[in-house]
Design a protein around this nucleic acid. Structure first.
Lengths: 249, 249
DNA sequence: CAAATTCCTGCACAAAAACGCAGAAACCGG
DNA sequence: CCGGTTTCTGCGTTTTTGTGCAGGAATTTG
């Protein structure tokens, strides 16, 4: 990996998460801490970041900026993202839906990962685009402004042409009786198609979505291979899902 | 392999993957590292790539370069955008390419305008999405990271299905002899398809691009209906284009 | 205050760049 | 066809750059 490339990645991470730890960076990029420190120093001299003990901060974050209520939920999503990423190997074809959990996953993808990501979600695509080694395939069609995702028959037809290794679904609601459910008809159609086109189906859901349901069904529980929440896999809430044959992470 | 041929190949690789390693290039093309380095140096002097230790990067990496000349050029682009917008009426189907000029147009669209915009450019799509009354159709396919636009046969096929009223092309180079030209083969294919699918073809070009040319031709002058620059229509530089039958705004 | 990180300095090694040079190919005007 | 010139390419050699490592200093933390 080239120096500039590394620095661009660091900068992206800093601007994204407002902070970065040199320790985690050198694991991510797989270089020595010295290199990271030198990079941070260089970026600091150029005024791109603020170097502090143990890492660096974004310039904008210098002001006391409280990330409102998002913080805790953000942390939960990071946990989910990490678990999800462990399922992705080099060379895979990955289908993803939209949603903030997926977005968090996109942001946390390790830079050395080489894979092909397919999605119709604009925010997710933006993240994938910043990644140095990921090929991005955009599913086209009409854009639904509120979900920021492409919807329609063309999009569905395109997804059906794909044979993906794995599919990550941001999940709005999941319960034992109704399976995974949602409230946007068009998004539901899309997610159905994505499930059909993938060998493995992974649902990402923060715990507060578990055991809730929405009006429209996407799929029954049996269609799900893996369920990821921020809770430990043996949490009693998740027990029924494991019993139903779903692998819980 | 000829020098120009080699450089075109390198440029293509850079535009495709955002980076190239001189080591891998000299294996690919089967020449010495010196030759590659000399090529990269040449391309860097022409501003086509950014040379770094170990290879080269596409311009999209140092986005720091953008804001520098941005201010003045920005004003010119606003002028162009205003002229372009005057061509759009309610109910129209509009095809647009990518590029900063198109982006400026997207930002300046009057909020009451009701129209359908079709594009494969991610930045442009983001702007259209924020507009209250515009329907957005996204052309899907693989994303070229450096031009932030979808490229490939699928994208072209989709565009060919469209019958748009008007098509706006951000133009990298235009001159009397070669017509409009560009340096990315895939983008060229896309723009060709867009022109074929539109009743009217409008070229947006800041004056410094006029009377310059790039290696790959998109279309001859005759295919262009309207040319928009920031200059007044009667500027002597534009006279030959008006004489060639193009409407100059 | 003590332990654990993290940071800095100098150093060594490897990879890449720069430089000069020479052979080969293309170009060209007689 | 033929010398002379220019251009292009590859090969050593030297210089620069990037990276990791080992120590000791500085810092955070409990």
């Amino acid at each position: 990996m080239l120096k500039k490339e590394r620095q661009a990645y660091i900068l992206h991470q800093v601007n994204l998460h407002n902070k970065v730890l040199s320790s985690s960076l050198c694991i991510d990029i797989n270089v020595s801490e010295d290199t990271i420190r030198r990079d941070l120093q260089e970026l600091a001299e150029e005024g791109k970041v603020i170097k502090v003990h143990g890492g660096a901060l974004s310039h904008s974050f210098n002001d006391v900026h409280f990330p409102s209520n998002g913080v805790y939920s953000q942390h939960q999503k990071k946990t989910i993202a990490q678990k999800a990423i462990s399922l992705i190997d080099n060379g895979m074809f990955v289908l993803t839906s939209g949603g903030t959990t997926i977005l968090e996953m996109a942001r946390s993808l390790p830079p050395q990962l080489k894979a092909t990501f397919i999605s119709g979600s604009i925010p997710a695509i933006l993240e994938y685009m910043h990644h140095p080694n990921i090929d991005v395939i955009l599913v086209g069609d009409r854009i639904s402004k509120n979900s920021k995702i492409t919807v329609g028959t063309e999009a569905i037809a395109k997804i059906k042409q794909v044979r993906a290794d794995i599919c990550f679904l941001g999940t709005n609601a999941i319960d034992l009786q109704h399976g995974i459910t949602d409230n946007d008809w068009e998004v539901v159609q899309l997610k159905k198609a994505m499930m059909d086109s993938s060998q493995k189906v992974v649902c990402l859901a923060i715990a507060e979505k578990v055991n809730t349901f929405q009006p429209i069904q996407i799929a029954a529980l049996e269609k799900i291979d893996i369920l990821i929440t921020e809770l430990p896999p043996d949490d009693p809430i998740l027990k029924p899902y494991a019993d139903a044959g779903i692998k819980v992470l």
